[in-house]
């Protein structure tokens, strides 16, 4: 009888493998993709932030709120150990190289939305000693594997944008309302914005994009000439954070 069982297991295993293989090899995953590829080019997801629109709603932090809520981002209440996926930063802090005294007050004194830049050449990925963070081939999102992260914080040192957050303590007591559909983190690992990879898989847009009352966040495949983001970047002047460092950030700020 043991033998029978083993035989069965082998069969079961093989079946799993085949189905796995099919899904991996299959060209289009099930579900509807909000980001139409449109062409043969590799998909590259990016975001454009319309600073003008965003500015109009001073004090609005809807994107932060929704993001942190669905991703179980804790509110440590201590600026030293803060964990932030998407937040608002002073213009000068976000764009130290763009700053000058004669800048319009409107811009100078306002805050801009910042998040992980999902760089095309991400330094955090380069330095990670365990491949816990990597750039996804299929769409360029800089991903993280919290199961593997050893918490060495090399990526924190390597990221020029302050987008990486280390869990200095167990985050769970600091999460007001836990979203059971998304895991929390454990103490000792690094985390950051993942462009809502889990929502994209379900055919949804990133939560911040979805919720923005001003529709200031435009998200899409930058390699698709017909995509909205591509169109808008063509028509408007945009800047990026610290482009001089050669990281090629994929968050574009529309001036």
């Amino acid at each position: 009888m043991g033998i029978d069982r083993r035989k069965f297991l082998t069969i079961a295993g093989l079946t799993t493998l085949t189905t796995l293989g099919k899904t991996v090899l299959g060209s289009s995953p099930a579900g509807h993709d909000p980001i139409e590829t449109g062409s043969q080019a590799v998909k590259r997801l990016a975001m454009a932030i319309d600073m003008q629109k965003c500015r109009q709603n001073e004090g609005c932090v809807e994107c932060t709120k929704i993001c942190h809520k669905i991703h179980n981002v804790p509110d440590i209440g201590n600026s030293k150990e803060e964990i932030k996926w998407i937040w608002k930063e002073n213009f000068e802090a976000a764009f130290p190289n763009q700053h000058h005294d004669l800048l319009e007050d409107e811009i100078k004194n306002n805050q801009v939305v910042v998040l992980c830049n999902h760089c095309d050449d991400p330094p955090c990925v380069k330095v990670c000693p365990t491949q816990s963070t990597w750039k996804r081939e299929s769409d360029g999102i800089v991903m993280m594997d919290m199961h593997r992260c050893i918490g060495c914080r090399y990526c924190v040192a390597g990221c020029p944008y302050g987008s990486r957050n280390f869990n200095f303590r167990d985050p769970r007591p600091f999460i007001k309302e836990t979203n059971p559909e998304y895991p929390t983190r454990t103490k000792g690992v690094v985390e950051k914005c993942n462009f809502c990879a889990e929502r994209l898989a379900d055919g949804l847009l990133p939560a911040c994009v979805d919720i923005c009352p001003e529709k200031a966040l435009i998200f899409g495949n930058i390699n698709d000439p017909k995509s909205e983001i591509r169109q808008i970047l063509k028509s408007r002047h945009s800047i990026r954070r610290k482009p001089i460092l050669g990281t090629n950030p994929q968050i574009y700020y529309l001036v």
Binding site: A12, T15, T16, T19, L20, K22, T23, V24, P29, A30, R136, S138, M143, D145, H147, P180, E181, Y182, P183, A197, A201
Partner: peptide, 29 residues
């Protein structure tokens, strides 16, 4: 473990069981 790796590392989120049902690879969900 298999689910974890394929979802996190490969973005593979669909699982088809031996009897043909399709599932989302997720412990919590």
């Amino acid at each position: 473990n298999d689910w974890r790796n394929s979802v996190v590392r490969d973005g593979e989120r669909k699982f088809v069981s031996p009897n043909g049902h399709e599932y989302k690879k997720s412990l919590s969900n």
